[in-house]
Structure formats: structure tokens, C-alpha cells
């Protein structure tokens, strides 16, 4: 795992990708610090981070696009499988390398409050909780984009789908507010979710029965609830949508709450997508 981690980390700095990612993130965050904290005379770094989150939509997918897709393109993924290491070590090694690249600008950002603190009152607890939240938000998005990169040989496709997916998560709040709060709407929402989950499963494992099972596991319970206790479903879907977005979790943290549920959501995002990446790599062995 360490060897793979080291190789991946080097690869980001051999090329321009790593530096570009760090540079753009710092530039954007610096600009936000300037407008909010320096020019706007605010002491809230949490708000600065909240306004900075939008840049992650663009740069995280570009950072992650090569992670798995490049190896598939170069046919080195099969080679990695012949090394005496577990598939999970390969995937986690690659994930940790991405995380390290992301941790560098976040570490630099955590110096900002110290500098700002010289000239005014800073609530350090809220600030550093928010920075932790910002790190976890990025980590969650990286996990998802790494998974998307594992689905294709083409880095460009990985990046484009990654941007679309992160943007979809970002606008999940807005989408949720458009959905009627009736039980029927909730049921339809969950049904659509089940179908999407089934389709994703099908394209990942290429097994119709598994895909059907995944879809039905999601749809059937909600169908039963809808038939027998439909008022339980009132406005459930929009609420779940809102909570499922890592951006929502991060935004909750920036309000100054050390919300265990929000942090739990972010961490489960990471675990879920790293697991999926591992499965999609492992399943190529069984193809």
C-alpha cells in the first residue's frame, strides 16, 4: 500500500495536476478571505470556507480523473492486480495519495485564522471545526470522483461525469426544495432513486439479478410504507435528499455546530465510495 501511495503521490507532482489543484484552491480561498475577512471586515473564516466550497465542484473531478482511469488506459491496472497486494490496498493507497494532495492546501488554509487572529477576534473552535468539515467535504467528493474514474478508461469522461455529479450534489438542496412534500412525491422520489441505484449497480457489476435486487431492496420497503402508512412518507424524500448531500453536512458544520450526524454523513460517503471503487476494480478480475 505504501509503495502505491508513494507512486501515486509522485505522479501528481511529476505532472502539473497536483500543483495546479493546490494553486487554484489557494487562489480561490485567498480571494474569498480577501473579500470576506479583509475587505468585508468579517471575522468568520467559516463563512469564507462556505463561499469557497463551489470551487471544489470544478477542481476535485479534474484532480481525481486520472486516479483509476489512467491505469485502465495504460493496461497497468491488471499489472497492479498481479502484485502481491490486496485490491483494497491499491484502492486505499490511491485514495490516500489524492487525500494528501488535498490536505496540503487545507493545511495552508488553516494558517489563515492564525494570521487573521493577530488583527481581531477569531472564534477558533468554530473556525477549525469548519476547516475539518471542509477537509471532510473534499475527502467525500474525492472518494466519489475516484469511483467515477474507476468506471471508465477515459480521463476526460471521468472529469466530465465527476463535475456533473459534484454539481448535482451541490444543487441537491435546491432540487429538494422543488419537490412537493406529499407522500406520493416521496414515494416516486425513492422509486427513481431505486432505479438509479439499480442502473449504477448494473453498469458496475454487469449482473442483471444483483442490479434488480439492489433496486428492489430500495423500492419495496417504500412501496409497503406508502401502501400501509403513507403519512410517514410526508416530505421524507426532500429531507433525505438534503441530508444526503455532503455539501449540506458541511454547511451545517460551518454554522458552528459540531454536528456528529453531519460528520458521520461525510465519513459514510467516503467509506461508501471507496468500497464501491474497490468492488469495481475487484470485479474486473471476475469479468
Amino acid at each position: 500500500m505504501l509503495a502505491i501511495y508513494k507512486r501515486e503521490l509522485k505522479a501528481y507532482f511529476h505532472g502539473i495536476t497536483g500543483m495546479l489543484f493546490i494553486g487554484i484552491l489557494l487562489l480561490f480561498a485567498g480571494f474569498m478571505v480577501f473579500t470576506n475577512n479583509l475587505y468585508g471586515l468579517s471575522s468568520s473564516v467559516a463563512y469564507t470556507l462556505y463561499t469557497s466550497e463551489i470551487i471544489l465542484i470544478l477542481i476535485v473531478p479534474v484532480l481525481c480523473m486520472r486516479s483509476m482511469a489512467e491505469d485502465r488506459h495504460n493496461k497497468t491496472d491488471m499489472f497492479l492486480l498481479t502484485l502481491p497486494v490486496k485490491t483494497s490496498s491499491i484502492v486505499i493507497g490511491k485514495y490516500l495519495a489524492l487525500l494528501t494532495v488535498y490536505a496540503i492546501p487545507v493545511a495552508l488554509i488553516s494558517l489563515y485564522p492564525l494570521v487573521l487572529g493577530l488583527y481581531g477576534e477569531i472564534n477558533y473552535v468554530t473556525t477549525y471545526t469548519s476547516i475539518l468539515g471542509f477537509f471532510l467535504l473534499g475527502a467525500a467528493l474525492i472518494a466519489m470522483c475516484q469511483f467515477l474514474s474507476a468506471l471508465t478508461e477515459s480521463q476526460v469522461i471521468a472529469a466530465v461525469i465527476g463535475i456533473a455529479a459534484t454539481f448535482a450534489l451541490f444543487s441537491l438542496n435546491t432540487i429538494a426544495s422543488f419537490i412537493p412534500s406529499s407522500a406520493l412525491a416521496s414515494f416516486i422520489g425513492f422509486a427513481v432513486l431505486g432505479i438509479i441505484a439499480g442502473l449504477i449497480t448494473y453498469f458496475t457489476v454487469r449482473n442483471l439479478y444483483v442490479a434488480l435486487a439492489v433496486g428492489l431492496i430500495i423500492i419495496v420497503p417504500f412501496a409497503l410504507i406508502f401502501i400501509f402508512a403513507s403519512d410517514m412518507l410526508d416530505s421524507l424524500f426532500p429531507t433525505v435528499l438534503t441530508l444526503a448531500s455532503p455539501f449540506t453536512s458541511f454547511e451545517t458544520i460551518t454554522t458552528g455546530l459540531f454536528d456528529i450526524a453531519a460528520i458521520g454523513t461525510l465519513i459514510s460517503h467516503i467509506v461508501f465510495f471507496v468500497f464501491l471503487t474497490n468492488q469495481s476494480m475487484d470485479k474486473r478480475r471476475w469479468a
Binding site: 509503495a3 508513494k6 507512486r7 509522485k10 505522479a11 505532472g15 497497468t76 491488471m78 499489472f79
Partner: peptide, 30 residues
């Protein structure tokens, strides 16, 4: 996998590494 050294049909090389870096990586990974 520890017992076998394998060269697939397409040599599994990382184009952006030097042979020295590459071999060091493989040795460490093994």
C-alpha cells in the same frame, strides 16, 4: 503472486517514470 513474476502482453509500464523509479516502485510493492 509472490511466487510469480509476470510480464503481460503489453508491458505494464508507467510512462512518466524512469526505469529506476519504476523498478524501485515494483520492488517495494512486491
Amino acid at each position: 503472486k509472490r511466487q510469480i513474476g509476470y510480464l503481460p502482453e503489453i508491458p505494464p509500464l508507467f510512462p512518466d517514470m524512469t526505469p529506476y523509479e519504476y523498478l524501485t516502485f515494483v520492488a517495494e510493492a512486491k
